[in-house]
Design a protein around this nucleic acid. Sequence first.
RNA 1: GAUCUCGUAGCUCAGUUGGUUAGAGCAUUUGACUUUUAAUCAAAGGGUCAUGGGUUCGAAUCCCAUCGAGAUCACCA
Length: 504
Amino acid sequence: MSDQEIVRRESLGKLRELGIEPYPAASYPVDTYAADIRINYSPENHPMDDVTLAGRLMSVRVMGKASFAEIQDSSGRMQIYVNRDEICPGEDKTMYNDVFKKLLDIGDFIGVKGRVFLTQTGEVTVHVVSLTLLSKTIHPLPIVKVDADGNAHDAFTDPELRYRQRYVDLVVNPEVRQAFVQRSKMIQVMRDFMVSKGYLEVETPILQPIYGGALAKPFKTHHNTLDMTLYLRIANELYLKRLIVGGFDGVFEFAKNFRNEGMSRFHNPEFTAMELYVAYKDCFWMMDFYEEMIEEVAIALHGSTKFQVGDKEIDFKRPWKRFTMLEAIKEFTGVDITGMDEDQLRKAARELHVPIDETMGKGKLIDEIFGTHAEPKLIQPTFITDYPVEMSPLAKKHRDHEGLVERFEVVCNAKEIANAFTELNDPIDQRQRFEEQLALGKRGDTESMVLDEDFLRSLEYGMPPTAGIGVGIDRLAMIMTNSASIQDVIFFPQMRPEKKIAAE
RNA sequence: GAUCUCGUAGCUCAGUUGGUUAGAGCAUUUGACUUUUAAUCAAAGGGUCAUGGGUUCGAAUCCCAUCGAGAUCACCA
């Protein structure tokens, strides 16, 4: 235990000796937030003579019998003025001299009641009439100080500590809270948008006997009573389509998916995807739908379709640029791969210095060329359409072009932020596609799909023509909040266990 | 999984070519100041230099291994 922790435990005892409970049980009648005061207070037009607010004590400047301090609530900080003879009207000055000056620490939760005034320097301040300790902190909070020039001192910046102790990060770094508030708002706008169209928010299994709906490696677990292997879902696509079979016109789910793959600033083992399926629509309808929804998100968060992300300005104003995949490859490499067979593609990929291996089929080769040369250059939101059939086993064959499917992805800031198809509803074609995937699996591709007989049976009962889309919520949140790492938009990103705590 | 970088006080960081007892600011404690402040002044306490081994008369510093983190790459959303 550090010195500071020992001192705080001692303070705790002294408070109890003075008859002050450091962890009182009663509700505290908060009626005002710091931001309310900052926004609404005006000495002439809107005096605030009786406010009660609560929060953490974040700084204290003692000057004899008068002190200035700051308390931080969920809306921000507010300066308070504490005068000895006002909080201690009688002879006993213990409350000020001992409790306030010595036994309170930065980080403690306190409640104050008082009147708002302007100091000589013009700062809005609460003149405290009574002060209540609400919860004592015994672990020192790292204090970020900002000097007169706006420079931060002692910022709490170590990424490991920030993610492991997110609660501390949230207390001392206000912009962190902001990113999460925006993330939540983004999801809310999307949800409202879809609900307003009449679509139903649903929940589907996370524990699945057969994983499907995406190309990825799953987490495996075991159910004891059933004595069977279950997989944590990698996607919810096949379940949502079963619901379309069942007669819903539109269903969506914000789903936690789990993929047992590498971690990076773009990948967390568990992540959130939103998938939406709408009956009697196709992927071209979905393009318009998505564009409109995301434009609305941008406006809700930034008041504009245009905002800064890293060193780029991104504009979500409709309409977005649309490329077929082959057009995009031609645009950024100068090579037209239209009509090439597998060997020709392999040769073209080598010439373009695209990393490839022998397990790759025609679809993966095209995808690699696109991923290496086109995707990194797509900063503004862009639709990429017409994917090869080999890499899209759940998408309907293109109505006009042999070998392609009706599919689009949206690429923005060099990352995919949506993936959509006109869904394959021909049960015989779907069975063949699964079988091709099985063949790829035998060839050594560890991410090929497995055959889901129950899903095929549902298609055999008949699924209406359907458009479906999947949206990477974390990726989209990174762009919308201008975050460089996925860990900045996930409260508790996955990390290795903390050695010290595990040992205790 | 590969490569590179990093790990020093509660927090942010110095620490020279390997050389006395490892430093600073903030935070903490004590004292001063009894005041409408924007890091008030003074003093003090605080360290398994990530962990373990090695080289050396001597290691925070050089070498090896391990643990943890970050960046880039691979896989992927």
